[in-house]
Design a protein around this nucleic acid. Structure first.
Lengths: 414, 414
DNA sequence: GTGCTTTATTAAAATTAATTGATTTAATGG
DNA sequence: CCATTAAATCAATTAATTTTAATAAAGCAC
């Protein structure tokens, strides 16, 4: 799609660049922003003036740096915008309300048992309303709701993200337009994303990935998934299926055992329901990931064996990511306890080098991302803020509809 | 790197957008460009005026479309710019001179025997000079020289692409600054790229990939390599190693045989020197890919067995590409004869579905790209033109040095 | 303390390319 | 032949950045 651009697009982009500079590297002065972005000092003054008027940033102390007038440090305002993230799956619903700086202000968790769409959507709506009340924020400052769901989605005509949760595992969830329904009921922008991709975006916007332009994110949820950020931007793939590492065929030469059938796939080794069942035979009653921490720390053999088998498959996947995508870093995060994710990283770091061709000097580092219950919800909460405030280069191109709100809308909203 | 932009960058980008529209969809009228790019008609008039002044485009017939003034069709001028592509490897040196439309005007091929750097560079310089003479073009219209080399390179400080050919297989080629040397001798811009990546860029700029925004390119050269184009742009990876499918570990469950050692890799099955040796034991004297066509058409068992084993490994690689990257299309191209590449595609299309998880409806199509001797050289020839004329979005961002010539420099050059 | 130097910030004017609105050009069709 | 339609362009306007110049605030020398 070859699209031209013009001065207005330039301005809205530069606005976001300056805001992002302050968010990532702040507190910082106008002159530092100018030097970094190569915008003139005057332009930075003009833009920061606008940003201050709408309350996105504010001036704080002056910084003395030798001779000359000390520069005025600019900070981003955590209370300028809030967002709600929803982590939804068959067995749980976690919702968090975060401020602009990504700090979780309030959260609500509940367990589910494969609810029907109507029921689930009602619960989400109620949770959102309760969060707004609990946090005592103005609804006008709620920038939107982001929903992270397991499995792939389809894109509708207008390239508005929508709404199939893998119908195979979710009876009744075929073709449910969650986005439209939630938008209508809540009257705020609603975004939906695969939970792994949402976690990756969250890592990019708030996590260690803030300064990493290209990374792969391996996500432990009910199964295993992945998301990627390339050149600073989420890369969803042509059909929205990129990063689906769970679908890779099983290898028997890594495990030393025979594979079940030709279409057996890596995801099998990370299906928590299968693990819970296996643990049940040993007398454990496990129904959520947090309970695994204790078993892991007690060196429960069933769990350790399970992890070892999975890690062997994952090691190959990591090599494939290295050689195909060559990201700067591979993050590991998700709903599992931090100690387990770290253990996976350790096993892979032991296995992978044996299968690596000699001669490659630099390889991506494996790093722990945000783990635990809130990982997905926080990632999902990022979606509205990311879309409203991130300097996405495609903003520079003319489009029929401005999908992304610009400062005029921010003026109106505040 | 967060950089701002301004009106001048907008203009140089819009110039390229309009030129690209005409190149890809031309002949087309100003009003069609306006509707497509969402630039106003007046802006398109201004831009096309500039492009005509420097001879990049010209007006041709009027197209009658019902009532009203007929629109004037604009065409890109094939003789506005030329480029020379160099395909260099241990055993051969192919050079082509192409015009702006990608038509090969002249070419020179010669066989080599692992030459030393001085010798090789001299041969390249001579070939370039001979091509200019043969094609009888003005040197001022030679936009540059692109060199495709096997194996990885490193990027120098200024992000000017440079200059290591995998030193392991090329004694004496450690740290040779080819780009700088050639630039000094030829006095034109010189670009270097991995041959697989160059072929991918060539496919994007001149091939079927012209209208495909995201694809993976599997390249058959002396071994096997890969390149990718994502969101319309070449994606080199963080260390310039993306697409290195040859490095993936071997799988024994696909071949049914034991792997040699832990670091045995897919590339082994595509190493032409190994194949030539195996064929030698059967009495064949093969030293270049074109000779394989006859053997293949005669159903030579050694060759067919070789291809079957390779294809089984490649099928897994294709699945990994599908699930990790999810490109629109996977292209297959390179120095092998077209019939052999097609055969690889057929075998993979037979194997892959068996290992695919059920439920995924859409999958990337496997397509034949340009095959044969000129594939790499044409891809390399694309590099200078691509860098000078393609609407690369990063052009919109302010930088210290303008690495890419803009229209001012085009004025001077013509 | 005073005055000079240095540096950050901002005000005013200039610049630039896109946009808007009016005009010209060239065909169709009654 | 003239009204209609649509493409292309001229002229004036607009909206952002840039340039130039002024102002403000600190350090430093005397």
């Amino acid at each position: 799609m070859l699209r031209g651009t013009n001065l207005k697009f330039v301005n809205s982009y530069n606005l976001r660049i300056v805001l992002e500079m302050i968010r990532l590297y702040g507190p910082m002065s106008r002159i530092d922003i100018s030097r970094s972005t190569h915008l003139t000092a005057q332009t930075v003054t003009n833009i920061t003036k606008k940003l201050m008027e709408v309350g996105l940033i504010f001036e704080s102390d002056r910084k003395q740096n030798g001779k000359g007038a000390p520069s005025i440090l600019l900070k981003s305002n955590p209370d300028c915008a809030y967002s709600i993230g929803v982590d939804f799956d068959k067995d749980h619903l976690n919702c968090v309300l975060v401020d602009f700086n990504g700090v979780i202000r309030e959260s609500i968790s509940q367990t589910l048992n494969c609810p029907a769409p109507d029921q689930a959507i009602d619960m989400i709506v109620q949770s959102v309303r309760r969060l707004i009340k609990k946090a005592r924020i103005k609804k006008s400052k709620l920038w939107g709701v982001g929903v992270g769901v397991p499995g792939p989605m389809i894109l509708l005509d207008n390239s508005i993200r929508a709404n199939i949760i893998n119908p195979k595992f979710y009876p009744g969830w075929d073709n449910v337009p969650i986005v439209q329904i939630l938008k209508k009921k809540l009257k705020v922008p609603v975004y939906i994303e695969n939970n792994a991709a949402a976690a990756a975006i969250g890592e990019r916007w708030y996590g260690i990935g803030k300064h990493i332009d290209s990374f792969f994110y391996i996500f432990f949820g009910a199964g295993i998934g992945g998301g990627m950020v390339l050149n600073g931007l989420p890369y969803p793939g042509f059909r929205g299926n990129s990063g689906e590492i769970g679908y890779l065929p099983l290898l028997n030469n890594f495990t030393g055992k025979l594979q079940l059938d030709d279409s057996a796939h890596v995801g099998m080794h990370f299906d928590l329901l299968l693990l819970y069942n296996e643990l049940k035979t040993a007398g454990y009653k496990i129904y959520e990931p947090a309970q695994l921490e204790k078993l892991f720390l007690n060196n429960e053999p069933i769990l350790l064996d399970w992890m070892q088998k999975g890690a062997e498959q994952l090691a190959y996947t990591v090599l494939a990511i290295e050689y195909l995508i060559d990201p700067e870093i591979i993050f590991f995060g998700g709903r599992l306890p931090e100690c387990m994710i770290s253990a996976y990283i350790d096993i892979i770091n032991e296995i992978a080098p044996r299968h690596r061709i000699s001669g490659l000097k630099q390889i991506p580092e494996l790093k722990l991302a945000r783990a635990g219950v809130d990982a997905t919800a926080l990632g999902s909460a990022t979606l509205p803020l990311y879309n409203s405030f991130a300097p996405i280069p495609s903003l520079l191109h003319k489009k029929n509809e401005v999908a992304v709100p610009d400062l005029k809308m921010i003026y109106q909203a505040l």
